[in-house]
Every structure is written in structure tokens, then in C-alpha cells.
Design a protein around this nucleic acid. Structure first.
Length: 405
DNA sequence: ATACATACC
DNA sequence: AACTGGTATGTAT
């Protein structure tokens, strides 16, 4: 049986023969970046903002020093009240999926110019890159990096200009697949979306094996856009033997393999990802979880071209979140991470440990956000833009963020 | 109401 | 030499 998640479609950037461009160590990368950016206006700006952050951290520490035991007690009671309310509202009944195209723009460009496959490639311009492929990443070339710095890291880097009309066209095809699993899917960007597949799974439970069977062969037939290929549809190729899942491809006559995707969430998402690949020749990664915040984090677990499910039970969620660095949480960026670290908080369980302190120095809204994070609670409904506009008082935004000023 | 800060792609 | 541009949301005044 073909394993669609680990076959040759997955990018292999560890090929022998690439040895003349192995990439850089972390230290090399840091050294080159520092050498080329210190003294620049950008660097000065960054330093200034950093100092402002340190000021605010100092203020927070002062508040903590001056707080009385009674203040701590009140703060503790406040957070515990929040925690019990949030725990009571925990909803594990939805299956939320986050899908992310792998290095989207770069993947499209490599697909359409195969000679780029083994080369370090980034998409963007001299002043800013949107994304890079995995060869380039070994050199430290990243999204949101200026092209001229990337060139210092990787002199052989090929920078392809953005072609947004093309990316939009590809995104439209991908979104067509999403809609088959959740007609109300929400796009987070051209290459990312959230789906609630709870309803799909109910329908899927009654689908026959045949309806859940996907085919592929080694020829290029699957590249024809918008086609979900089925070999048995043609009469001249009688099914050879269905027990070893082999058929003959009507295009090239070679043996084609099939996989049967399960009725569960993993099966549905494997099928979704296979359809995306079939229709675009591009891979994507996905996370499956009881809420959107966790689903997004899960996406990174088996990237690229993989998926990961966090089971919908409280124990698994708490275990998942336990040693998770707070920076992994959508909404917690570099600044909030630094502020939290100064307060002794690096992982999500540290949030619980230091909840009284957090409540003393952050707003109620931010404190509640942190409590939600520590419990692994997030948004369990997906609303696209049209819906979001009609709901003026949304209790939980898709990606709530703490503001730590 | 306005300006500023943080975060994401 | 050079570090996007657009959107969303929260905080401070």
C-alpha cells in the first residue's frame, strides 16, 4: 500500500552530492547576520524597542516587589476563578484542522521550474523575502529576511520574484479541496486555513471503502488539475486484483496503487492532503486538534508533508501543553516571550505556576488569555470573514493575542 | 477618538 | 547601502 505521507514526493534536502553547499551552523549564521546588520538603522530601531521592553519589564518587577501578600492572595483567587470558569467551558466536541502549504511560494516556483529543485531558492525581492526552500534554509535563509542579507548567507541563492496572480490561482484550487471538508473554512492567508471537519466526519462515517479509496500511479496523469483520478472508471482496464490494491493506469498502462483512507480525522486529513497534492503537485502539512490554537501548533509537528493529531481529551491536551514553550503559542511573539521569561515563565505550565504574578502585572484580558493558554483552551468554531463581520461581539477571536504594554 | 504597541503572514 | 506592507487587536491618553 502506498504511503502518501512518506513517499518520494517529500523534499529530501540531505542528498549526497549537495556536499559543496552543506549550509551553515547556527553560529555561522548569527555571525554573518550580526556583521551585516549592526550599526544599521534597522538595528538601532530594534535596540531602542528592546530597551523600551526592558523598561516595561522593570516596571512589572517593581509592581511585584511592592505587592503585599494580600495582593498576591487576591490575584491568586482571581486566576483560580478564571481557571475554573474556563475549565467548565472546555469543549472537546469539535475536530478543528489547520492546513499550511509547505513553503508555498517557493514550492510553486520549483514545481514550475524543475531545475530549481536542488538549488537554494527564495521568493521575494532584494529588500524582503516571502519564503525559502529547504536547501536555502540550511544556510539560514528565512521568510521575512531581506534579500541582500540572504545573499550574504548564501551567495548562490536564487531569488525568484513574487508572482501573486499565480499563487492566488493555486490557492483557489487548494481552497476548493478545503470546501469539500468544511464549506465554511476560514483562510488565514493564501497558504493557510482553518477547517471544522466535525460535520464531515459524521457523513464520512457512512462512506464505503470504495468511496474512501485514492489512486496514484507514477506517470504525470495526476498532475491534470481538478481531476481526482480513478483507474477503474475505464472499461478496458478491468480491476486486476483489489485485495493487493493494484490497478492499471489508463494513461501509462503501469501498475497504480491505491490507499484506503480511514473514516477518522486522520483519514479525512490524509485524503484532503492527497487531493491537494493530486490537483496542484504541492504538499501541505496539517494539524488536528479540538481547537484552532492547538491545531496550528500541531501543524508544525510533522512539517513538511505530514500531519499530527492531538486527541480530543483533557489529559492529552494538558500533556501536550505542559512543556510547550510559550513562544509556540499563536499570539505570543518575541516581546511577550521576553516579558514572560523575565517573570520566570518559559513553558505553559510555568504560566500556571506564576499565575498570581501574571495577574498582578497584566490586564484582566491578557491574564485570561494566559489562563486559556495554560489549559490548552482555544476557539472551537471557525468563522470566515463574512461571518466574522456579522458577529460584532465575538467572545474568542480566532487568534486572540495578549497585549503586554 | 487617536496614537502607539504587538503579532501574523 | 539596504530590513515589506497590510490587517487585526489591545492599551494608554
Amino acid at each position: 500500500m502506498a504511503d502518501f505521507t512518506s513517499d518520494g514526493f517529500c523534499l529530501n534536502d540531505n542528498k549526497a552530492g549537495l556536499s559543496q553547499m552543506e549550509g551553515h551552523s547556527k553560529e555561522d549564521i548569527a555571525k554573518i547576520l550580526t556583521k551585516n546588520s549592526e550599526g544599521s538603522k534597522f538595528y538601532q530601531n530594534k535596540k531602542q524597542r528592546h530597551q523600551a521592553t526592558e523598561q516595561r519589564i522593570a516596571q512589572k518587577k517593581k509592581i511585584l516587589e511592592e505587592a503585599s501578600p494580600a495582593d498576591y492572595n487576591d490575584a491568586l483567587r482571581k486566576t483560580d476563578k478564571m481557571l475554573s470558569n474556563l475549565e467548565a467551558s472546555r469543549d472537546l466536541s469539535h475536530t478543528i484542522v489547520h492546513v499550511d502549504m509547505d513553503m508555498f511560494y517557493a514550492a510553486v516556483e520549483m514545481r514550475d521550474a524543475p531545475h530549481l529543485k536542488d538549488k537554494p531558492v527564495a521568493v521575494g525581492g532584494n529588500s524582503m523575502l516571502s519564503t525559502s526552500n529547504y536547501v536555502a534554509r540550511k544556510f539560514g535563509v528565512r521568510a521575512a529576511q531581506p534579500g541582500f542579507l540572504a545573499k550574504k548567507l548564501c551567495p548562490n541563492l536564487i531569488i525568484v520574484p513574487c508572482n501573486f496572480p499565480k499563487y492566488r490561482a493555486v490557492a483557489a484550487i487548494v481552497r476548493g479541496v478545503f470546501a469539500e471538508y468544511d464549506p465554511n473554512y476560514a483562510s488565514a492567508s493564501l497558504d493557510e486555513a482553518y477547517l471544522d471537519i466535525t460535520e464531515h466526519l459524521k457523513v464520512r462515517a457512512d462512506r464505503t471503502e470504495e468511496e474512501r479509496t485514492l489512486w496514484r500511479c507514477d506517470c504525470e496523469y495526476w498532475r491534470s488539475l481538478d481531476a481526482d483520478w480513478k483507474p477503474s472508471a475505464t472499461q478496458e482496464t478491468e480491476p486486476t486484483s483489489s485485495e493487493n490494491n493494484q490497478e492499471t493506469c489508463p494513461e501509462c498502462g503501469r501498475v497504480a496503487e491505491s490507499i484506503v483512507t480511514g473514516t477518522d480525522a486522520e483519514g479525512a486529513v490524509l485524503e484532503l492532503r492527497t487531493k491537494v497534492f493530486r490537483r496542484t503537485a504541492l504538499t501541505c502539512s496539517a494539524g488536528i486538534a479540538p481547537n484552532s490554537k492547538l491545531a496550528k501548533i500541531c501543524t508544525d509537528r510533522n512539517k513538511p508533508n505530514g500531519q499530527y493529531q492531538l486527541p480530543p481529551n483533557k489529559e492529552a491536551v494538558l500533556e501536550f501543553v505542559k512543556d510547550l514553550p510559550v513562544r509556540k503559542i499563536p499570539g505570543i511573539g518575541a516581546t511577550t516571550e521576553e516579558t514572560l521569561r523575565a517573570l520566570g515563565v518559559q513553558t505553559c505550565s510555568d504560566i500556571h505556576k506564576h499565575r498570581a504574578s501574571l495577574a498582578l502585572v497584566f490586564s484582566d484580558l491578557s491574564t485570561e488569555y494566559f489562563m486559556r493558554v495554560s489549559l490548552g483552551i482555544g476557539c472551537t468554531t471557525i468563522s470566515n470573514d463574512e461571518e466574522r463581520k456579522s458577529i460584532s461581539n465575538e467572545r474568542y477571536a480566532l487568534l486572540p493575542s495578549p497585549i503586554t504594554v
